[in-house]
Simulated assay, not measured.
Amino acid sequence: MIPVDMRAHIDGVRALLVPAGYPVHFIEVPAAATYPYVLLWSSSGRMESEALCDELEDLNDILGVTAVGLAADAVLSAQRKIRPLLSDASPVVPGRSVSLRYFDSQTVQVDRDVTLPTPNLHPKFGVDLYRIRSVPA
């Protein structure tokens, strides 16, 4: 199996998100987060091959893109900026040809597991799911 560096793929997605102007985190968010922000999440890279006996060198995975804000409107505004940057985009990953395709969205929700001390409220979040495909260039 040819190892694929999922970190390089996440870095490629981060670069695409720079114009949105939001902090971008992967899996973990610092305790003193700046709102709104974007949280990326994925597996460590689900690999596949075209034929049963071929080497596993194609990445076919799901990338979660969570927009988090102090209000539902902030989440919707963030998603409105993020989606055009990622939909049908090609993150740059050395030695790979990568594509992203938007395919699903989950409802905007209140994160009741987190209570912000000031102003004593819960952040809101919305999740978009993208198919990330990556093959050797």
Score class of each variant (00 low, 15 high):
D54L: 09
N120D: 12
I82K: 01
K124F: 10
S134Q: 01
R133G: 04
G64I: 04
L129E: 08
R80Y: 15
R80E: 13
L85Y: 04
V13L: 05
D5Q: 12
Y37K: 06
P94H: 08
P136Q: 08
V98G: 02
P36V: 04
I82W: 03
A74C: 11
D58C: 11
T115Q: 10
L76K: 07
G64F: 02
L16A: 11
R14W: 03
A20V: 08
P94S: 12
D104W: 10
A137H: 06
N120Y: 12
V13E: 00
R14A: 07
Q79V: 00
H25M: 05
D61V: 07
I62N: 03
P19Q: 14
S43R: 07
Y35K: 06
S44W: 11
H122T: 03
V135L: 07
V75R: 01
F103C: 11
L56I: 08
R83A: 09
G126H: 01
D113P: 00
E50T: 13
K124L: 04
L70N: 06
V108F: 04
R80C: 07
A72Q: 07
L59Y: 02
P123A: 06
L121R: 15
E55K: 10
A33R: 04
L116V: 14
M1D: 11
D88C: 10
V13I: 15
S134M: 03
Y22C: 03
I132G: 01
H122Q: 10
Q109W: 01
K81S: 14
I10Y: 02
S87V: 04
E57I: 04
V93N: 01
M47R: 09
T107H: 10
A67Q: 06
F26V: 07
P117W: 10
L76T: 05
S105L: 12
M6V: 08
V110G: 08
V13H: 00
V114F: 11
P94G: 08
T107G: 09
H25G: 02
L63Q: 02
H122D: 05
H9M: 05
G126S: 05
M47L: 15
K81P: 01
P91H: 02
P117E: 11
S43P: 00
Q109N: 10
M1A: 13
L116P: 05
L116A: 12
G64H: 02
I62E: 10
S97F: 14
R7T: 14
C53W: 15
V13M: 06
E55M: 12
V4P: 00
G95T: 13
D113M: 09
F26Y: 13
P123Y: 04
P91T: 01
V75K: 01
Y35Q: 05
R131S: 09
T34M: 07
E48Y: 06
S97N: 14
R133L: 11
R83P: 03
S99R: 13
V65N: 00
L129M: 14
K81E: 14
A51P: 00
P3G: 09
F103V: 11
M47T: 10
P117L: 14
P36K: 01
A67W: 02
P136S: 09
L40Y: 06
L100H: 02
R112I: 09
R7V: 09
P136E: 06
L16V: 12
Q109K: 11
S49N: 13
